[in-house]
Amino acid sequence: MPVQIGDKAPDFTLTSASGEPISLKDFIGKKNVVLYFYPKDDTPGCTAEACAFRDSYQVFQDAGAEVIGVSDDSSTSHLQFAAKHRLPFILLSDKGKQLRKLYGVPSTLGLLPGRVTYVIDKSGVVRHIFNSQLNFKGHIEESLKTLRELQEA
């Protein structure tokens, strides 16, 4: 069963680009989390999406959220990708696609790993899911809209 809005987000621990273990529980009670799954480092669409998150990163921070990108690329690949594009947020390596499977992120045309963003509130509940392989900016816009709604609540 894929994760749905209103579900408790499954916890995880994955390795970051810097080699540190990062868990969802590290943020619970402290920050909202924008967890976005993307297909591959340094491809045109993924670079456009990552740079859009980068360009809005301060807005996410001001909204009390941490941005976390996930793909099955290695930590070394993430480190190079982050350095090349000055990405200030966390990138996690999901080797074997276990987290992708845990969240039920679909593939596109059965081949490409899906591009899905989850907004998880401070209590660990999924508040919004945006699934679009091609609408890169929509991932940022939809996430920010949800975070603003959480701030107003």
Score class of each variant (00 low, 15 high):
Val3Asn: 06
Val3Trp: 00
Val3Pro: 02
Gln4Glu: 14
Gln4Thr: 12
Gly6Arg: 06
Lys8Ala: 14
Lys8Asn: 10
Ala9Trp: 03
Ala9Val: 10
Thr13Lys: 08
Thr15Val: 14
Ser16Pro: 07
Ser16Trp: 01
Ala17Trp: 09
Ala17Asp: 14
Ser18Lys: 12
Leu24Tyr: 06
Phe27Leu: 08
Lys31His: 12
Lys31Ser: 08
Val33Lys: 02
Val33Thr: 07
Val34Phe: 03
Val34His: 01
Leu35Ile: 09
Tyr36Ile: 05
Pro39Gln: 06
Pro39Val: 07
Pro39Cys: 10
Lys40Met: 11
Lys40Val: 07
Asp41Ile: 03
Asp42Gln: 10
Thr43Asp: 06
Pro44Asn: 10
Thr47Asp: 05
Thr47Cys: 09
Ala50Phe: 02
Ala52Tyr: 01
Gln58Thr: 15
Asp62Gly: 10
Ala63Glu: 11
Gly64Phe: 01
Val67Gln: 02
Ile68Asn: 07
Gly69Tyr: 00
Gly69Cys: 09
Ser71Lys: 12
Asp73His: 10
Ser74Gly: 07
Ser74Gln: 12
Ser74Ala: 13
Thr76Tyr: 11
Thr76Leu: 13
Ser77Arg: 12
Ser77His: 09
Leu79Arg: 13
Leu79Ala: 15
Gln80Thr: 11
Ala83Gly: 13
Ala83Leu: 14
Lys84Asn: 14
Leu87Cys: 13
Leu87Ala: 13
Leu87Glu: 11
Pro88Ser: 14
Pro88Lys: 14
Phe89Cys: 13
Ile90Asn: 04
Leu91His: 08
Ser93Leu: 04
Asp94Thr: 05
Lys95Arg: 13
Leu99Lys: 10
Arg100Leu: 08
Leu102Lys: 15
Tyr103Phe: 05
Val105Thr: 02
Thr108Arg: 13
Thr108Met: 12
Thr108Glu: 14
Thr108Ile: 13
Leu109His: 03
Leu111Thr: 05
Leu112Met: 07
Gly114Asn: 10
Arg115Thr: 10
Arg115Gly: 13
Val116Ala: 04
Val116Leu: 07
Thr117Val: 05
Val119Cys: 05
Ile120Met: 10
Ile120Trp: 08
Ile120His: 06
Lys122Ile: 08
Lys122Cys: 07
Ser123Arg: 12
Ser123Cys: 05
Val126Lys: 04
Arg127Ala: 00
Arg127Cys: 08
His128Asp: 09
His128Lys: 12
Ile129Gln: 04
Ile129Lys: 06
Ile129Asn: 04
Phe130Ser: 09
Phe130Asp: 09
Asn131Gly: 00
Gln133Val: 00
Asn135Ile: 10
Asn135Trp: 09
Lys137Met: 15
Gly138His: 10
Gly138Lys: 10
Gly138Asn: 12
Glu141Leu: 11
Glu141Lys: 12
Glu141Trp: 04
Glu141Phe: 00
Ser143Met: 05
Leu144Asp: 02
Lys145Phe: 02
Lys145Met: 04
Thr146Arg: 07
Glu149Trp: 00
Glu149Ser: 12
Gln151Asn: 14
Gln151Cys: 06
